[in-house]
């Protein structure tokens, strides 16, 4: 019995060591993780523009091209981040910022299922929050198991390996053509879901308190996700002192900007070239 317990103890110990090793590896090599660590370690930042959202915004908005000064923007968007996570990220950023940003751009792909309902906090953000209490389920190989596949991608694909994070934006050169076709009856923007989103309301409130302009943008997706509405802007009322503008960059106009064969890296995500084009395009609309 003692021998058995001793061996099980060794097994558990080796498993814990593997967990620590895995955590070190993902902190160093995973984009989301290293980006999160970088954002937490920003020393009294003074960025004028902050970008929030999930992987669509993380890949698709080029921080260095959004404003006239290339160093004025930081992309905080995180792959798989929910709106709740974005709110937490904004709150954390404002606490450490030396000067509050002038504007916050929140990129949303509303065509994605349940995008407004997700209130789960992103595991990486949750794990690295200063007030988080760790549980048994937080073992890195359990909590961050999906990052393992991302690591394998990096090992076998030079395009993934050579991707870089620049001021928070993930730049991948890989190209996967958009072979989807536009639907005959295209959808509309779900305005009511925007209005009813608790976390957008909270972000609006936070921005209002800090005199920050919050801008909502519909991120572009593959052609089969397009809605049939114009760019706008549409005014959204969250009962703050100023109304918030929503720009639709997933309408018919975006077809003239993005090349379906060269600007995408798959799954409605823009590659480096696509992000450059898209950022230059939206800059004309959202920057005064």
């Amino acid at each position: 019995m003692q021998k058995f317990i001793f061996k099980i103890g060794l097994f558990i110990l080796s498993f814990l060591l593997i967990n620590i090793f895995y955590l070190i590896i993902i902190q160093k090599f995973d984009w989301n993780f290293s980006k999160r660590i970088e954002a937490l370690n920003l020393k009294k930042p003074t960025y004028e523009n902050i970008i929030l959202g999930n992987s669509l915004a993380m890949d698709g908005i080029d921080s260095r091209l959004l404003s006239s000064d290339p160093n004025n923007t930081y992309n905080l968007a995180l792959g798989g981040a929910s709106l709740n996570t974005n709110y937490i990220q904004l709150f954390e950023y404002l606490e450490i910022a030396q000067t509050k940003p002038t504007r916050v751009v929140l990129g949303i792909g509303s065509y994605r299922e349940n995008i407004f309902e997700k209130n789960k906090i992103h595991p990486i953000v949750q794990f690295t929050k200063s007030d988080y209490t760790y549980k048994l389920t937080d073992l890195p190989v359990v909590k961050f198991k999906w990052l393992f596949i991302e690591l394998i991608k990096k090992i076998i694909s030079s395009e993934h390996r050579n991707a870089e994070i620049v001021q928070g934006q993930l730049r991948i050169t890989r190209t996967v053509a958009d072979k989807t076709k536009k639907k005959e009856i295209t959808g509309t923007i779900p305005f009511s879901e925007y209005r009813n989103s608790e976390y957008i309301k909270q972000m609006a409130q936070l921005c209002d308190q800090n005199n920050i302009e919050l801008i909502l943008i519909e991120m572009p997706g593959f052609r089969n996700t397009r809605n049939n509405q114009s760019i706008g802007p549409y005014e959204m009322d969250y009962h703050q002192s100023t109304k918030i503008k929503l720009y639709n960059f997933n309408g018919p106009d975006i077809d003239a900007v993005l090349d379906p064969n060269n600007d995408w890296l798959g799954g409605s995500h823009l590659n480096k070239k696509g992000a450059e084009k898209f950022t230059k395009y939206i800059k004309n609309y959202i920057m005064p």
Binding site: K7, K145, F148
Partner: peptide, 16 residues
């Protein structure tokens, strides 16, 4: 042998 079991267990959790 035990390293193999640890690795298999870890891979089970990672690739599950």
């Amino acid at each position: 042998r035990w390293s193999f079991y640890s690795l298999l267990f870890t891979l089970t959790l990672l690739l599950g």
